[in-house]
Design a protein around this nucleic acid. Structure first.
Lengths: 238, 238
DNA sequence: ACCTGAACACCGTTCAAGT
DNA sequence: ACCTGAACACCGTTCAAGT
């Protein structure tokens, strides 16, 4: 469409042949930069210096792009978690698991749209299974029965990957403080309890925030509460 | 477009004037019946016996339809929770909260697509705030400080509304059993721990299932573990 | 084998026109 | 005031044609 000039700035090397890998990495980069809605086949093709229809030689369709994007993120997690230094699970399963989960979380902090995409996937990729297998290994080494390990996975849910579905998901513009301020003014009579709670102290932690209700501190509080509950049940031999 | 005949089967009463309410209810019905992707402005218009462009007199755009759809679901939850019979929070806050959460869950079991939509919303509707206010009221009555109530909300996350984000989200066709069978055959060497776990006993509960990893039993196990952990911290006076 | 232009059947949304 | 037809600028995807 546009005449191919020497300056094809958007692509690193227009000459590198297309590949599934390159398409998926470009998709992640595009979403990181311009948001989930910006991912269209035409935009993605432009990103790799090709036409939209060329993508279909490497991915079946757009759904497959989303599947692949999730795969890329999960692989990033597995690499990061592989480098974690932590006590051995035999020694302290809680510390071992905690360290891995908090490391996985860092990946989601770099790709905050990823939880949303992950939730739309209906097929479980082998990469998730590999990650879960590692978690089960830790729990087993820590003395869990298979049955309790299974339950532990359910209790952790997405927290095992480092993020939690929350009730508020305000975007950047609508910060905790802003939301609180609006509430106090307008809604003190309608929502007395929540207004009281927010008035009591709105804390913030912009760096580690995945949204108003998923900051680093709260994530760790919840994680520790759950790990403690699981350890209690393990010790009770259930 | 199609000539308007006497038999306009899809609409209950073609004569009732359009309203925001009617549009949103139709949207929920459409998604319940044909899935999230089936919601288009043209399909939705057809559902209420009008043209697509007429919808724009009652909703700003498609995003607003999704906002409204979430609102409808949350209102359904608030109505259901309002009818719950449970001990008073002063008497037994855990039982009071547990009963409400399990009731909210029933609404999501009727609209299994709702969690996915909820997660895409960036603005917090007053209806969610109202629901959360009730939860805070229960916690306060149970002896929670505002600060611990705040943390409790974070720990519960979406579980406060009755659903949990899980790692597997297989669709109906790909049941737990099917997934387990595939795994055992192909992946025993790659994923020894998880295969062992699944071999140890795949249980099922088709009626209460929100996905492989969110059946009723597991949901209640996780909820109780969390409530217990919160009560422990409350009693410790944190 | 890999890539592409043109085309198809859809989208959400705008706008001027109807009643 | 409420509704609509035609049109616009996009989509994902197919297909036949290029190298």
């Amino acid at each position: 469409m546009t005449p191919r000039t020497d300056a094809d700035e958007l692509t690193e090397q227009p000459r590198i042949p297309l590949s599934r890998r390159r398409v998926l990495r470009a998709a992640v980069g595009l979403i990181d930069r311009d948001g989930l809605d910006s991912l269209t086949m035409r935009r993605l093709a432009q990103e790799v210096g090709a036409e939209a229809m060329s993508l279909y030689h490497h991915v079946a369709n757009k759904e497959a792009v989303f599947d692949g994007v999730v795969e890329v993120i999960l692989e990033e997690i597995i690499v990061a978690v592989g480098k974690v230094e932590a006590p051995s699970p035999q020694e302290d399963w809680q510390a071992a698991l905690r360290a891995r989960i908090l490391t996985a979380r860092e990946v989601f902090l770099r790709h905050r749209w990823a939880p949303q995409v992950l939730q739309t996937r209906t097929t479980t990729s082998p990469v998730v299974i590999a990650y879960i297998d590692q978690i089960v290994a830790i729990l087993r080494a820590g003395g869990f029965s298979f049955d309790l390990a299974h339950r532990a996975l359910h209790v952790l849910g997405s927290r095992a990957l480092g993020f939690s579905q929350e009730l508020f998901q305000p975007d950047g513009a609508q910060s905790a403080d802003a939301a609180a301020a609006v509430m106090m003014e307008q809604m003190a009579d309608r929502f007395p309890n929540i207004v009281g709670m927010l008035a009591d102290g709105v804390h913030e932690d912009p760096a580690g925030t995945l949204g108003f209700c998923d900051d680093q501190f709260e994530f760790e509080f919840a994680l520790d509460l759950i790990l403690e509950g699981l350890e209690r049940r393990r010790a009770a031999g259930s």
